[in-house]
Design a protein around this nucleic acid. Structure first.
Lengths: 200, 200, 200, 200
DNA sequence: AATGAATGAGGATTCATTCAT
DNA sequence: CATGAATGAATCCTCATTCAT
């Protein structure tokens, strides 16, 4: 029952966004009464948060599973790939994520600890980068900053490909991102001669 | 008058988002009557679109000005820096941008051509990357994909720093992004030995 | 519930007309919430149309019942009497009818088929007149025209007596109308001698 | 100036009715500013009343002129013809008249003496009928009632022909009404034998 | 527990009217 | 005098939430 509701909510929220999604639409889709929704969730917002949490927890679990016991570089690669795959599978959730969590709007002023969750999630990933640095595999760049950059790039690329702004398959997106974030845009020949980047 | 309204709208929309922003709040802040708002804008949505367009046009203009007549690598650097600076100055607008344009929610199903605008904007930037490729400065990666990755990274990094998730100054953000996107995460010594990335 | 609303609406609309009648006044009178009204009617206009249709249907049914199986002259008499009785009973509805249907204002430009209904109603009555003509009981006058004349006379007389412009009881009104429409204003002695009417 | 406004008002009111007619539309059509309208009329309602009064006064004047110094039967005939002609010429005003005066809605509860005017007008016409009775030309029927019946019949017939419910020319309408009200619906042969009407 | 009818606060929008220029 | 920009009261309608059944 609860599950049915959350699934329906996921669909409706993702199609219409928080405000345009109506509680009775979710009830209809879930084939329960409006009242039943309120037996499980105190409010529309709480239902919304439940949808997010469920999926985010799953994402987190997957990322963890696929990055565990790997070298930092393999782990970052796996992270990128996992996220792309996840959002590719969960398109409707991804829409929500982009709308509201990509910018934790309703959410963070509220009583949901989503903001906190995100911080923790990022921190965990940042540790991979730190480890890479210590091992001399990654450059010395702010680890959280690196993760946020990667994460933002993944989301934007996926979102825009979903919207039809680019025509790249999931695999192409993964490849592009891995190449870009690992070795950069500059060709190696060029990269060596010039000191463009580091000079202020 | 119109200007006063748009400014107030910008503030209120950025603080509350489209739905939580009330027309009378905008009117109050602008110190005009509600009716006056409707002299200039047919609807709340039109006002919203006006806010977006104004700022986006300005951003576009700035980016254009700062990337013109530059080598591809300088131009991309300038692009990153311009965007960071712009959003740093225009924090309240940036909030809106993240909420709604970063994920063109209300916007793209609607009668605003913002989606079209964004496509055009991205295409223009992608041309810089293409040029870089032709000159052998940049690697052969999908140019639009590259721009979307950079753009997503910039937005996410800025947003999260605004939200206090990372503690990086604007300058540090710029440096990080330039370094990351130009030369990648891998240390050169490591990068050469391994073939991690390109192998499927 | 629906019935309660329609009855309240009938009262309020008849007292104030469509525009001056406020939805919340109807809700108050019906002792339901505004929301409940909108459970049954999509809009104020639809509620209005419902009020009209209900009564008009009833009027039509009554007229039909009382004119059926009668000679044309008896039927026309019955028609006049039925209408007078009906509006005498349903004074508040009659007010509405006069305002809006007597002159199908809001109504006919709209999505209500009231205009169509009226046409059909008139046509049916006109058939009585036609029958009378064929039997040689009624003169050869445009049957629809005759019905419209009678109908207009009835309404106006009733309306003005309601407003206190004349002091005639329902029975007196009926008598007056029947006499007038059947035998005319002219005294028979006079009528024969002169040829006033038919000469152009 | 005042005249221009009243003419524009007449047009707009007749096309849209009191409530749907907007003051700025009248101003636009009259090519004056909204403010100017308020120099001449205290309110929209007063302007509305002015439109009515102007036309009604004209109608009254015409009726008076055409019925004066005539025998009762000629006068009634002239009255019918004058009204038909007047409304035929002044269709847009007639629309207003039907909407609002035919049922003196806004009007009579208000501070306009239109209701009074109408009473006076009817009384004057009723005197013609009284005179006819005294002379033995007309039957003994309530004179005011007779006038109201005629007046209602005229309005309804005209209105419905305007709306396309009947297809009768002005002249046919006049003839029909004169015939009907003077000699009644019954054929003389039939009328004599039966006593249908007068018996209760 | 489940239902869904009823609630009513809340908000976008309109437009008659005013008044500074 | 004329203007028309500004005002803001007024009202329809929505929809999250409740609660009697």
């Amino acid at each position: 029952m609860r599950e049915r509701i959350v699934e329906a909510a996921e669909k409706v929220f993702s199609e219409k966004g928080f405000y345009e999604a109506k509680v009775y639409q979710i009830a209809d889709l879930a084939e329960v009464s409006v009242g039943t929704i309120y037996r499980f969730f105190k409010s529309k917002e709480e239902l919304y948060a439940a949808v997010l949490k469920k999926k985010l927890t799953e994402l987190e679990r997957r990322v963890e599973k696929r990055t565990k016991h790997k070298s930092p570089e393999e782990a970052i690669k796996a992270y990128i790939e996992t996220v792309v795959d996840f959002f590719d599978e969960e398109r409707s959730f991804f829409e929500i994520f982009m709308r509201e969590v990509g910018s934790l709007s309703i959410i963070d002023e509220e009583r949901f600890e989503l903001s906190e969750w995100y911080k923790g999630y990022v921190k965990k990933l940042a540790r991979i980068v730190s480890r890479g640095e210590r091992r001399g595999v990654f450059k010395e760049l702010d680890p959280v900053g690196v993760i946020l950059a990667i994460s933002g790039a993944v989301k934007n690329l996926l979102y825009c490909s979903m919207k039809g702004f680019v025509n790249l398959s999931s695999d192409e997106i993964k490849k592009l991102l891995v190449e870009l974030f690992f070795k950069g845009l500059l060709t190696s020949s060029f990269s060596e001669g010039k000191a463009l980047v580091t000079s202020k």
